[in-house]
């Protein structure tokens, strides 16, 4: 299969007359890993929702593997694309492995339920994210960071060729941030999972992602390697901080 796994063309989103996204276009090739950065309120989350297919753009089109998103059934979208949200509701007591097992839902036949292959995928995902020590625990009693890792494991179990992550490290301590980043790199390089992540930490973004997309005021204003994108001028203009604060991490990237 050739061609981009994901293509956005002139995507505009207006909510109550206010433009949240304006004319955003980009492509993600198979096996690519990109990070989406931008200040708060720039439209990153809205863009993720458009890519996930839960928000329909006011104008423009989104294609998954060459097929318009609007022509795909929800279950088919889920088999092609997994989403790791920041947090989610847990109204009922659920064990960690039960939450992760929900990742197999798009693969289940409506009547049969989970098959041995599904259980193996759940087990492998739990192992890969390193949650073996949390098995049997009620997911509601975990820390925010642990819950974030459970949601990551759910998406790994979903085994879709594209993964979207919304600030997947926001609740994690430093060691787990790095581990989660390394896991994402491993999923991308070893399994070929194409990936788009929203991150706030420019250092992590520059270090772990070969491609950076910058969103500001609803527009895609830069798209390239960390060196091309994270210039002193842009860091000052877009993020309003002194470049020295992030330069060190950026220059660590070859």
């Amino acid at each position: 299969m050739s061609g981009p796994v994901l293509a956005l063309d002139g995507v505009t989103v207006e909510i109550r007359g206010r433009a949240i996204l304006r004319d955003v276009s980009f492509r993600l090739e198979e096996g690519e890993r990109a990070v989406l950065i931008g200040p708060n309120g720039a439209g990153k989350s809205t863009l993720l929702r458009v890519i996930a297919g839960t928000l329909h753009p006011t104008a423009g089109r989104v294609e998954l593997g060459g097929t318009p998103m609007a022509h795909l059934e929800r279950a088919e979208v889920a088999r092609r694309l997994a989403v790791v949200p920041q947090q989610t509701a847990l109204p009922f007591s659920m064990r960690v492995e039960e939450v992760v097992a929900l990742g197999r839902l798009p693969h289940e036949a409506s009547l049969r339920g989970a098959r041995p292959a599904d259980r193996a995928a759940v087990s492998a995902a739990i192992d890969r994210v390193g949650l073996g020590h949390l098995l049997g625990r009620d997911a509601r009693e975990l820390s925010l960071g642990e819950r974030q890792l459970v949601l990551l494991a759910l998406a790994v179990a979903q085994a879709s060729p594209i993964m979207l992550l919304d600030e997947p490290t926001v609740h994690l301590d430093l060691r787990h941030q790095v581990e989660a980043m390394e896991l994402m790199r491993d999923l991308n390089e070893r399994d070929g999972t194409s990936m788009i992540a929203v991150l706030h930490d420019l250092g992590l973004a520059a270090h772990f992602f070969p491609r950076i997309l910058v969103i500001d005021h609803g527009r895609l204003i830069a798209d390239g390697t960390p060196r091309e994108v994270l210039t002193d001028e842009r860091i000052r203009d877009v993020f309003g901080v002194e470049p020295a604060l992030v330069r060190l991490a950026v220059h660590g990237q070859g």
Partner: peptide
């Protein structure tokens, strides 16, 4: 699919 909320249900392939 609804166990983790409506947005998550959509992500898991529920219409």
């Amino acid at each position: 699919g609804f166990l983790l909320g409506e947005e998550a249900a959509a992500h898991l392939g529920v219409d």
